[in-house]
């Protein structure tokens, strides 16, 4: 059996803890900005692009700081980031081009006004 050894607890590094909470604050602020855009701007390509940009920014904070990838060796960083970059390329290609092309080819048209077929529950 393993025996309990005398474990020495290191003192808290206040700056490090402060840094962690600072990143959490950044992420909360980015989310708040997303809400501002969601309620003040009409839906469209520009707004969607802003949302995706802010999301990737948040993702960068999580992966780089919380998951500590930013402090690993370069080989590890690239072996994670490069495959993801190809996936993002695939997403952009499939979503933007293929989705719209299929919609076009099937002759699907957008709806200009609200549907009226609704009833209230008694």
């Amino acid at each position: 059996m393993e025996t309990a050894t005398n474990v020495i607890v290191q003192p808290v590094d206040k700056d490090k803890i402060k840094g962690i909470w600072k990143i959490a604050l950044y992420m909360a602020l980015i989310t708040a900005v997303e809400y501002v855009f969601a309620f003040t701007m009409d839906a469209g390509t520009l707004r969607s692009t802003i949302f995706v940009g802010l999301t990737i920014w948040k993702a960068f904070f999580i992966v780089s700081e919380f998951m500590h990838l930013g402090h690993e060796v370069k080989g590890l960083i690239y072996s994670i980031i490069l495959p993801m970059m190809f996936i993002i390329w695939l997403i952009v290609a499939l979503v933007n081009m293929e989705g719209a092309a299929i919609k076009d080819a099937r002759g699907i048209v957008d709806v200009e006004g609200p549907a009226v077929e609704q009833v209230n529950e008694d």
Binding site: V95, K103, D110, V111, E112, P114
Partner: peptide, 18 residues
């Protein structure tokens, strides 16, 4: 995203949406 962007979108006023 593929299914969403190949589905009909609602282009009317957001207030009138049902």
């Amino acid at each position: 995203a593929f299914l969403r962007w190949s589905a009909p979108a609602y282009n009317g006023a957001p207030e009138a949406f049902t």
